[in-house]
């Protein structure tokens, strides 16, 4: 069990913090090229199909890199 824990800690999880940002930039790139080709925004499911990321990962990644939404920030407390 200690093994499993160590494996995930040392190997899997360093990746996690890195991949959140990597995923976000992959999503952005895919989105840009999709818009160029199709003339519209891709849906989360289309992004999921093309990048292999789960919808949850996509939401999570976008949340992690989100800049404070300046337009709305005054109303958030």
């Amino acid at each position: 069990i200690g093994e499993i824990r160590r494996f995930i800690r040392d190997d899997g999880l360093v990746k996690v913090s890195r991949t959140l940002k990597e995923s976000a930039s992959r999503i952005r790139k895919f989105k840009e090229s999709f818009i160029k080709e199709e003339g519209r925004e891709p849906t989360v499911q289309e992004i999921s199909q093309k990048t292999g990321l789960t919808p949850e990962d996509i939401i999570n990644a976008m949340e992690a890199v989100q800049e404070p939404t300046s337009l709305f920030s005054p109303i958030f407390e």
Partner: peptide
Amino acid sequence: TLAEIEEIKV
């Protein structure tokens, strides 16, 4: 930590 959050998720 992120590692602990990952454990909770699993």
